[in-house]
Simulated assay, not measured.
Amino acid sequence: MNYQYPIDFSWETSETVDVIRFFQCVEQAYEKGIEKEILLAAYKRFKEIVPSKSEEKKICNEFEESSGYSTYRLIKKAIESTALKVKG
């Protein structure tokens, strides 16, 4: 991993940790797969911290530019899938 996670310095420490956990779940999904329930729970928490669609898009685009991992495509795939495990 040669990139940084997009962080908003107005977040509390626990919020920052939860956002990083979400991005780590996305990484895991792309690299080896992750349980759908874990990924969607991390996304739900991420949306509690970043409720604005425009802010979500900005943060996720920053993450995709630096990592190559699309959170949008992955979450869409997880929601539409009936499988218990998601792989990006």
Rank of each mutant, 00 (worst) to 15 (best):
L39V: 08
I7N: 04
C25E: 10
Y43F: 15
I59G: 00
G33W: 10
Q24S: 13
K36F: 08
K76N: 12
V17N: 13
Q28A: 12
Y3C: 08
Q4G: 02
A83E: 14
A83T: 09
G68A: 02
R73H: 11
F23I: 07
K32N: 08
Y69P: 00
T13E: 12
Y3A: 08
F9H: 13
E65K: 09
S10C: 07
E37P: 01
E48T: 13
E35N: 11
K36I: 07
K32L: 04
Y69I: 00
D18F: 05
K53G: 08
T16V: 11
I7V: 15
R21W: 10
T82V: 13
K87F: 06
W11S: 09
I7D: 04
S70H: 07
K77T: 04
A41Q: 13
T71N: 01
F23Q: 04
A42D: 08
T13D: 12
S81G: 05
P51C: 02
G33R: 12
F46H: 06
E15V: 00
K36H: 10
F22T: 04
K53Q: 13
I34V: 15
N61V: 05
E55L: 12
A42E: 05
E62W: 01
E65V: 01
F23Y: 15
Y5S: 11
V17F: 12
T82G: 12
A78E: 03
I7H: 02
A78R: 03
P51M: 01
F22Y: 15
D8Q: 07
E48I: 03
W11F: 09
E27Q: 15
S52H: 00
K77G: 00
I59A: 02
S52C: 02
Y69R: 07
F23R: 07
C60H: 01
S66I: 02
I75T: 03
E37I: 15
K77H: 06
F46G: 03
E48D: 14
E27C: 09
E37A: 15
K47E: 13
K77L: 05
F22H: 09
I20N: 02
F23N: 03
T71F: 06
E35C: 03
V19D: 01
Y72H: 15
A78M: 06
S14V: 13
G68D: 05
K85G: 01
S66F: 07
T71K: 06
R21M: 10
T82W: 10
T13W: 03
D8E: 12
I49R: 06
K36T: 06
L84Q: 13
D8T: 05
I34A: 04
L74W: 09
I20M: 11
S10K: 12
F46E: 04
I20C: 05
V50I: 15
K44T: 13
E15N: 07
A41Y: 05
K47I: 09
L39H: 07
I49P: 03
K77F: 03
K76Q: 12
C60I: 09
M1G: 15
